[in-house]
């Protein structure tokens, strides 16, 4: 009963209205919260491709957005940690958002990661952010040659690849979710003019 009342209250309609306005204000074109499966990944990239095609987006921008979306979605499905909230245990899920302005696209992901991983993730992203174009190339080739595919199918190349393809810095934040996990937010900007 209590659940039903959430939807029926005037506050809920208000929330939807505010949510809609807020999405518009932030130019958010796609938002998803939930389990990120391979089916979801395929559905989103098909949707984004169709939209960009319709908007006659430059081919290079289309390819880069596609690329970043795939890596970011696969990051959530491979790396999002479990966390408990109320009666639920969440795993492999997160928030995925695509927004765009006349200048750029922005792909944002948010997912739970264990506190234990926070420092190493920060270190990894900071290091990737500091690399120059030629260092990124060297690092990519080195990791491809020396790295092993994880059991989850990751090659440890995602962040380096996103930096190479977009030419922009990765922006991240960690916010508390519970005693054991943090919310890991990652934002990638893709310029519409290269």
């Amino acid at each position: 009963m209590a659940q039903k009342e959430i939807y029926k209250s005037a506050g809920f309609m208000e929330f939807v209205y505010e949510f809609y306005k807020s999405m518009q204000a932030h130019e958010v074109k796609l938002v998803y919260e939930g389990k990120v499966t391979h089916q979801i990944t395929k559905a989103f990239i098909a949707l984004a491709e169709a939209q960009m095609e319709e908007n006659e987006e430059a081919a290079k921008v289309q390819r880069t957005v596609f690329h970043v979306m795939v890596e970011c979605l696969q990051n959530i499905s491979r790396h999002a940690d479990e966390y408990e909230s109320g009666d639920h245990i969440y795993s492999g899920r997160g928030i995925f958002m695509v927004s765009n302005t006349p200048d750029s696209y922005c792909v944002t992901t948010g997912n739970a990661v264990s506190h234990k991983k926070v420092e190493s993730l920060k270190k990894m992203i900071d290091e990737v952010n500091q690399l120059t174009t030629s260092e990124l190339k060297t690092q990519y080739m080195k990791q491809m040659k020396e790295g092993q595919l994880s059991t989850k199918g990751g090659a440890g190349l995602g962040f380096i690849d996103i930096r190479r393809k977009t030419g922009t810095q990765l922006d991240y934040h960690f916010l508390p979710l519970s005693d054991t996990v943090s919310f890991f937010l990652l934002t990638t900007i893709i310029p519409r003019k290269f």
Partner: peptide
């Protein structure tokens, strides 16, 4: 198109 995991393969 290939993703990073495929690039390793």
């Amino acid at each position: 198109y290939f993703n990073t995991a495929s690039s390793k393969i």
